[in-house]
Design a protein around this nucleic acid. Structure first.
Length: 461
RNA sequence: GUGAUUGUAGCUCAGCUGGUUAGAGCGCUGGUUUGUGGCACCAGAGGUCGCCGGUUCGAACCCGGUCUUUCACCCCA
């Protein structure tokens, strides 16, 4: 066998022990909050049938799906004619499974499959990796985790308000100081398209105005012209695009007049106000919650509220996003189920926390005491003590080889183990251990009981 | 999918206009120290210069391809 350089696929990553400690901290923080709000955890398989996934994310999304080659003789069903007609004909015959692209569509599939077992409203959360065959770049990976929380089977706007609460709670727990939860409503965007005289073109409108912050006013206008918007309609959009900093209340006041000609738009505005009213009744402070009428978001299935969270002071895309979808389960044959949900991107949250340098120290995570033994006899005693430490709830390990003491100590040092328990001939005779505090360098001969309490006391500090 | 960009020791990076035996810091191994880590000093190991091909008397360096890294666009967590 020839030597090969080990490697992993493009855009995918290994996570070492210190990264995992931090990632788990994020997962646990988010999980706690989800549970606190009454969400129950669910998992779905990494692969779905391609028919479940395709057509749900637009043409672009379909391109970004990882397709899995059929097992066995995957070319069996392909004829020469199929081949000549191109990949569109070949693909469905060689691949019927794909890796999940997000957690929402598999969830919709789950709801329809288990519709009779579910009591509605159904609140579920899900924290699993998803895969996208995108070109990797800053804050963008081909494999990343999403932490989704969705409610289906109710169109109550309390759900939206609770999502705002959850986002704020997670961010407070993580200690992220400066961020904004942008919120908008798809119906407001639809209304805008109507009142400027471009009814039905809200799709193009959304894609263009969503980029306002990024590409600037003139480029947005150019893009709209390119999409066939008239000069008049783009001009009519002026008051929205040329936004100075307005408070949420000022925006509402403005849009009440601006959208007066569109019942859909007015409905969106009312929904938004109601969400904020519920939010306030829940005790939520409007700080960090920003109404942004040009927030659009790509995913086509959103029909009501949409949100997106941006952390200030870092150049990383949104760390969370979501919205309401009225008919996501419709394509799977279950109509009339409204849902709303959102997702935290843990990998981006990690990047943000890392860039801001606000990950807390987590020393209590690892081994608290390591046993160092001089020889065979000492090691026998060491094994008994090892179990005693563990029984007392102290994370303990024994150096497994009878290496030089220096080497054993070195290992403990590298691994940042705070205590080393030395067992030599003298300790054996006295039925004691020499407990060394690696930070201070102080060492003391103690009984097992006293050593245990010394370690426990120090970890409480 | 489009346009750039990166690749040299385990890691971070030098390496001049193409010229003999490719360097540094950190890390690693051993020693100074056979009952003690960090600090210091000494010694040592470790590289098909991403891969394939081309130009040349000669390539880490120039050219082409390919993979990878990073970044922007599209889109998105």
């Amino acid at each position: 066998m020839s030597k090969q350089k080990p490697s992993i696929p493009k855009g995918m990553r290994d996570f070492g022990p210190s990264e995992m400690a931090r990632r788990n901290y994020l997962f646990e923080t988010i999980r706690e909050v989800f549970k606190l709000f009454g969400y129950q955890q669910l998992e779905t398989p990494a692969m779905e049938n391609l028919s479940t996934l395709t057509g749900k994310y637009g043409d672009e999304g379909d391109q970004l799906l990882f397709k899995v080659l059929n097992s066995g003789e995957f070319l069996k069903k392909v004829s020469e004619a199929d081949f000549r007609e191109g990949e569109h004909n070949v693909l469905p015959k060689i691949s019927e499974k794909g890796l999940r692209y997000d957690l929402t569509v598999p969830f919709a599939r789950y709801v329809v499959m288990h519709q009779n077992e579910i009591t509605y409203p159904f609140k579920r959360f899900q924290m699993q990796p998803v895969w996208r065959a995108d070109r990797p770049q800053k804050g963008r990976y081909r494999e990343f985790y999403q932490c989704d929380a969705d409610v289906v089977g109710t169109d109550s706007l309390i759900c939206e308000a609770e999502i705002l609460m959850m986002i704020k709670q997670v961010f407070a727990k993580l200690g992220i100081p400066d961020y904004s939860i942008k919120i908008n409503n798809r119906k407001i965007l639809t209304g805008m398209a109507e009142v400027i005289g471009e009814k039905g073109k809200e799709g193009d409108l959304c894609v263009a105005i969503d980029k306002l912050d990024k590409i600037g006013l003139q480029n947005v206008r150019d893009e709209l012209y390119q999409k066939g918007f008239s000069v008049d309609s783009v001009a009519a959009l002026g008051p929205v695009l040329e936004k100075e900093r307005r408070s949420n209340q000022d925006w509402f006041a403005f849009l009440k007049e601006y959208l007066a000609g569109s019942s859909t738009g007015m409905k969106g505005l009312n929904e938004l106000e109601e969400v904020l009213a519920f939010f306030s009744q829940l005790g939520g402070a409007e700080q960090h919650v920003v109404f942004d009428p040009v927030l659009a978001r790509g995913l086509s299935y959103y029909t009501g509220a949409i949100f997106e969270v941006q952390v200030e002071g870092v150049q990383i895309g949104s760390v969370s996003g979501g919205g309401r979808y009225d008919n996501l389960t419709g394509v799977f044959g279950l109509a009339g189920i409204s849902g709303v949900g959102f997702s935290f991107g843990v990998d981006r949250l990690y990047d943000v926390m890392d860039a801001l340098g606000i990950f807390p120290d987590q020393q209590s995570e690892g081994t608290q005491v390591m046993l160092v033994c001089f020889g065979e006899e000492e090691r026998k005693k060491g094994l008994a003590l090892l179990s005693a430490f563990r029984k007392a709830g102290i994370a303990a390990e024994i150096y497994p080889d009878l290496d030089k003491i220096k080497k054993q100590f070195n290992y403990a040092d590298k691994k940042n183990v705070p205590f080393v328990a030395v067992i030599g001939a003298e300790e054996l005779v006295n039925d004691q251990i020499s407990l060394k505090d690696m930070k201070s360098g102080k060492q003391e001969a103690l009984s097992l009981e006293r050593a245990i309490s010394a370690i426990i006391n120090s970890s409480l500090k």
